[in-house]
Nucleic acid binder design. Structure first.
Length: 275
DNA sequence: AATACAAGCAACCGCTGTAAA
DNA sequence: ATTTACAGCGGTTGCTTGTAT
């Protein structure tokens, strides 16, 4: 990897932005957009590096930035999304229009994290976040079975328009979830992929993603093979299952491929998956 | 009023992923 | 297949402001 030259070395300014600099950057982007951040400062007449300009625009100057204190609802959403996604600030920010990843990160570190620590300490039980997750039972089998029984229909799209209420999915949404012991995964324990059915290309289209609602009815089981575990070592399957919607907005690592496999390899047992 | 400490926030740093050459 | 250049991301730093002593 080639490191960009140091700003100072190039005689470029660092540190807080002056109002005049903000003005120059804003008016330049208004007129020309920001196709090439590296070239932008030179063309705009700014003594800044492109990286600095980009950060300033994204975190402060963008017209759609929402300023001011975070609402209770926003804070709740951050806490719940962080519970599900971890420190993926940009993914969390994507769910909070007008808020930047930097801002959310700051709020988390200066406020929410401490608040959670306090509330955790005040509880005898472990973190309350477990309450929104389905029960997990170890299984000796080579496959994982995820079975839903309540409610009748679980709608992934509801999760996509995530709100605090959407995050409070109760454990009753999943009667039981059984996940095999990942330690038992063996590389030779694989299955052929040649039987994967062909899927219509429209499956991947934006329209399919945006306009259709993948739903999964109750009482169906999903088998996750060891091959899939090897291929998607990232997956905490119980969470993945709840967060299936992330596959559709690319906020979930390998999510699209994961759900493609879910759909194809387990076609028999997941035939109720509708698009 | 002066000083020390803490909290909040903007900005920087360094790494990774990816597209183009 | 490899190299290069760039955008984007998450972690960290350091300045500013507020509060306590």
């Amino acid at each position: 990897m080639v490191r960009a030259p140091c700003c100072e070395k190039m005689g470029l300014k660092k540190g807080p932005w002056a109002p005049e600099e903000d003005q120059i950057l804003t008016s330049y982007i208004d007129k020309h957009g920001h196709g090439n951040w590296r070239a932008l400062p030179k063309q705009a007449g700014l003594l800044r590096c492109g990286k600095s300009c980009r950060l300033r625009w994204i975190n402060y100057l963008r017209p759609d930035i929402k300023r001011g204190n975070f609402t209770i609802e926003e804070e709740e959403t951050i806490i719940k999304l962080h519970d599900m996604l971890g420190n993926r600030w940009s993914a969390i920010a994507a769910k909070l229009p007008g808020r930047t990843d930097n801002e959310i990160k700051n709020v988390w570190h200066t406020n929410l994290k401490k608040r959670l620590l306090k509330s955790d300490q005040s509880k005898s039980k472990p973190s309350s976040k477990r309450a929104i997750k389905p029960k997990i039972e170890r299984s000796d089998s080579n496959s994982s079975i995820i079975t839903q029984s309540e409610p009748d229909k679980f709608n992934f799209r509801e999760m996509d328009t995530i709100t605090s209420s959407a995050c409070t999915t109760s454990s009753s949404d999943f009667s039981s979830v059984t996940v095999g012991d990942s330690k038992n995964i063996k590389s030779e324990d694989t299955e052929s992929t040649e039987t994967m059915p062909v899927i219509d290309e429209s499956f991947w289209s934006e329209a399919a993603i945006d306009d259709e609602t993948p739903t999964m009815s109750s009482s169906q089981s999903l088998t996750i093979s060891n091959e899939m575990r090897l291929q998607y070592p990232f997956a905490n399957y119980e969470e993945t299952f709840q967060q299936g919607h992330h596959a559709y907005d690319s906020n979930f690592d390998d999510g699209m491929d994961f759900w493609y496999d879910i759909f194809t390899r387990t076609n028999d047992s997941i035939e109720l998956l509708e698009f």
